[in-house]
């Protein structure tokens, strides 16, 4: 019984891990065109909309650590902090959103993902990037591609996670106030 309560958490973690692996593989193939897709917002949607605050935070924190350990050192703990922050934002808005996904969640995903990628770009100093203006086109293309992936897969991925959760556990939307 005790274990069953953690099934949504496990589902979220495993799903995030699998999504991350798929993205890694996708990026491997995209590297031929020096393109890289990042969808941080996608990883926090299910935990923020369907798990309690603590569990959601744990999932986003662990996913952030996972991503940071796989990404180059230049990201320097960025996702460890970014994903919990995104989680907090989404969690605060979850009462106004469709928890099973909808146009509102797609819009939210687009906005928070875009902001996160822009912050990441700004944090990697221009000297590290070799002058921002010099590769603006590639950067825009990369961000657009990431946004497109979210647009296409966002609701599908959320639905998949919810369905998996349902299979093993009756749907519960855990209510808990976020720590301030």
């Amino acid at each position: 019984m005790h274990l069953r309560r953690h099934i949504p958490l496990l589902v979220a973690l495993i799903a995030n891990n699998i999504l991350w692996l798929i993205l890694t593989e996708l990026n491997h193939y995209l590297s031929v065109w020096s393109l890289y897709i990042l969808t941080p917002a996608l990883f926090v949607l299910y935990p923020a909309l369907n798990l309690s605050y603590r569990k959601g935070l744990l999932v986003s924190l662990l996913t952030g650590l996972l991503q940071d350990s796989a990404l180059p050192l230049s990201s320097n703990g960025f996702f460890t902090l970014a994903l919990p922050t995104l989680h907090l934002i989404t969690f605060r808005l979850r009462d106004k959103l469709h928890r099973e996904g909808g146009l509102d969640t797609v819009l939210l995903l687009q906005v928070v993902n875009l902001i996160t990628l822009m912050v990441l770009t700004a944090l990697l100093s221009p000297s590290q990037l070799g002058g921002l203006s010099a590769h603006l086109l590639a950067l825009i293309l990369q961000i657009l591609l990431s946004q497109l992936v979210i647009l296409v897969t966002g609701n599908y991925f959320l639905g998949l996670q919810r369905r998996l959760g349902k299979v093993f556990f009756k749907e519960v939307r855990e209510e808990e106030a976020p720590a301030t």
């Binding site: 990026n27 491997h28 590297s31 393109l35 890289y36 990042l38 990201s75 770009t121 590769h135």
Partner: peptide
């Protein structure tokens, strides 16, 4: 095992 090449990083 995999390559990570984009605007943000160039590593494998």
């Amino acid at each position: 095992t995999h390559r990570q090449i984009g605007t943000w990083w160039h590593e494998m």
